[in-house]
Design a protein around this nucleic acid. Structure first.
Length: 640
DNA sequence: GTAGGGTTAG
């Protein structure tokens, strides 16, 4: 890309010089046709820089470009993001007498929309005589409005064109459907879907893809899947849209499932597919599939794609293999902000805060400007490694040195940082000093710190705020209840239970999953579906016996705790996952990743003891906390 | 032989 950027100013000045002689020169129609063929070829191949060079050659040769030249030139200049040449080309169009050609005008409308110059686009549209206003002109302006977040104008124009009988085609639908994003627009999107069928355009693959994305962006992944299953001829982009949709909604298991289907159908994936699949492997901690994908990437020659390299770094570091992540990172010739963020996050979540900070400093030395998300990783790295002072100094430098205003997620990290180190009052003071409204993550971090330091009073205060902000988030109720439990306040526990009952809140069914031989094994509480169920429960009983033994040896008279740990009526999913992992002891990693939706205090203790007894490490991902820090990796991993 | 469009990373 950089070489292109260097050449662009030259193109602009070339155009300026050459056009001055254009109006005087004679036109030779035949050669213009010849040039046009070449221009079309270049533009179609996406070689826009070459197309612009050719355009300036046309001018230099003394030929006058015609209605067949301009669309390609205008498109190429827009694709190269040359706003100056856009208006220059407009004046060329006028001077060459092509100002009446609907296709040239359409190109101009689209080009102006591309640069968000909607007034200019509208002006071109309005100055076009109504007999020349074809569907394409409307389409260009509609999609211009929608792309520039001006959907109302887009829909108004759509009703206008229907009112005066201008035919609608699939491109009109593409422009409009793109405007239906967000949960409030689902109805609108669905009515567009109906209209599309009514117009008989439901065989168009592109509109189908666009509708699919619409359902995803409107938050209705179920409709998206239903629709996906109904599409008879799925293209690569159709598969990608569904895979990305699942991936962006955190439905990682579904992503891997769909990817398997795609392989079975013989569809060749591309970089976009792999990005979605790798991020899902990362979230599931599924290194086996991740590695298989890496082999595929190399087989298809996509290993130099920076999106994929970044996705691989994240995948390896989230799967506990920081070494492989580092190798990929070091081999990257051009590391961008995302690459640095990924590797810093990797070291941070692995508790190697010092290395994470060294990498951040190296990034700054490499002239990469930091942004909000990289600071989330830096701050959470400090909090994981207990680097309180350093964390604070980085926090202060955000605004002072880089002009970045801290967002709630940054405050949440610093509250976590202060809270973990026992500075609960400072944490509270920081929240009070916030210029923006603290969100659930901020108060949640304080509540979490209160759990660690058994501070009931402050915990209750944080809880009060949390109940206002996120009244249905069960995790916070459980957290406060656990604080009460720690200090032996039975009344408190009862109060929380009553509160949850009144609000009809139930601890939602948690599940745990473990990766083994490229497959994800999912367990819910009391699960008896797994083929190895019998052996899993056998192991579990053995573990419980061992825990009682261990407790007897290590704690004098503390058997009640271990009794509490084993006398459960329904076996929690975490325990089933741990037992499964131990049963299949050939699982190739020392560290076992268990991802859980919400992990309870007893299970934490259970796993901690099992880990000590069998001498194995477990990484636990708590998805509740993970979601708080969407876009940044924060305190989602705990190590035993 | 003209235009318009869909899917990517921390």
């Amino acid at each position: 890309m950089s070489w292109e950027k260097r050449k662009i100013p030259r193109v602009v000045s070339l155009l300026k010089r050459k056009y001055t002689t254009l109006s005087q020169s004679s036109s030779r129609g035949n050669t213009t046709a010849k040039w046009n063929t070449q221009l079309r070829e270049l533009s179609k191949r996406g070689e826009y820089y070459e197309a612009m060079t050719l355009y300036s050659q046309i001018l230099r040769s003394g030929c006058v470009p015609n209605a067949l030249s301009f669309p390609y030139a205008i498109k190429s200049s827009a694709s190269l993001s040359l706003p100056l040449t856009a208006s220059q080309l407009h004046s060329h169009v006028v001077k060459s007498g092509c100002g009446n050609d609907p296709f040239v005008l359409t190109s101009l409308i689209s080009s102006y929309s591309h640069f968000s110059h909607l007034q200019n686009a509208r002006k071109v549209f309005d100055e076009t005589s109504s007999s020349k206003k074809l569907t394409v002109c409307y389409n260009a302006l509609i999609s211009g409005y929608v792309k520039n977040h001006n959907c109302d104008h887009g829909f108004t124009l759509f009703f206008e064109m229907r009112g005066i009988g201008v035919p609608v085609n699939s491109v009109t639908m593409l422009g409009l459907v793109r405007g239906c994003v967000g949960p409030l627009q689902l109805n609108l999107g669905m009515s567009m879907h109906c209209l599309n069928v009514k117009f008989g355009l439901d065989n168009d693959v592109s509109v189908g893809n666009c509708l699919l994305t619409m359902y995803v962006k409107c938050g209705s992944i179920e409709y998206a899947r239903k629709f996906f299953d109904c599409i008879p001829h799925k293209g690569l982009i159709t598969w990608n849209a569904m895979i990305s949709g699942y991936a962006q909604n955190g439905l990682a298991a579904q992503v891997l499932d769909l990817y398997r289907h795609m392989e079975e159908e013989g569809v060749i994936p591309d970089a976009v597919t792999f990005v979605g699949v790798l991020s899902s492997c990362a979230n599931l901690g599924n290194k086996k599939v991740g590695q298989k994908v890496e082999v595929e990437i190399e087989r298809l020659g996509l290993q130099y794609n920076s999106f994929l390299q970044n996705a691989l770094i994240t995948m390896y570091s989230k799967c506990g293999d920081l070494g492989s992540a580092r190798v990929i990172f070091d081999d990257m010739p051009e590391k961008n902000l995302v690459s640095w963020t990924a590797i810093i996050g990797g070291y941070g979540t692995h508790g190697l805060g010092e290395t994470a900070l060294k990498l951040f400093d190296a990034m700054i030395k490499n002239d990469i400007q930091p942004d909000g998300p990289v600071f989330v990783n830096v701050l959470s790295a400090c909090s994981h490694a207990g680097l309180t002072e350093k964390g604070l100094s980085y926090f202060y430098s955000m605004e002072r040195d880089y002009g970045l205003k801290p967002r709630p997620e940054h405050y949440a990290c610093v509250v976590d940082l202060l809270g973990r180190s026992g500075c609960l009052e400072e944490a509270q003071r920081l929240i009070k000093s916030m210029p923006i409204k603290p969100d659930g993550a901020v108060w949640g971090a304080l509540l979490g710190a209160c759990k660690i330091h058994k501070n009931v009073k402050l915990g209750e205060l944080a809880f009060e705020k949390l109940v206002e902000l996120e009244p249905t988030n069960v995790g916070y109720y459980i957290l406060l209840s656990n604080i009460y439990s720690d200090v032996g306040d039975l009344d408190g526990i009862l109060r929380i239970r009553v509160m949850m009952k009144e609000r009809n809140l139930k601890k939602d069914m948690g599940c745990s999953y473990v990766e083994f031989k490229g497959k994800t094994h999912l367990f819910v509480a009391g699960d008896k579906q797994h083929p190895q169920t019998k052996d899993i429960y056998r192991i579990l009983i053995k573990l419980e016996d061992l825990i009682v033994e261990f407790d007897k040896l290590n704690r004098k008279g503390g058997q009640e705790r271990s009794q509490e740990l084993i006398s459960r009526t329904r076996v929690h999913s975490e325990r089933l996952a741990v037992a499964f992992a131990l049963l299949n002891s050939d699982i190739g990693t020392d560290i076992l990743v268990i991802k859980n939706l919400r992990i309870c205090g007893e299970c934490h203790l259970f796993i901690k003891l099992v880990s000590k007894i069998v001498d194995r490490q477990f990484i636990i991902r708590d998805a509740t906390r993970f979601h708080h820090f969407k876009g940044g990796v924060c305190s989602c991993n705990d190590y035993w």
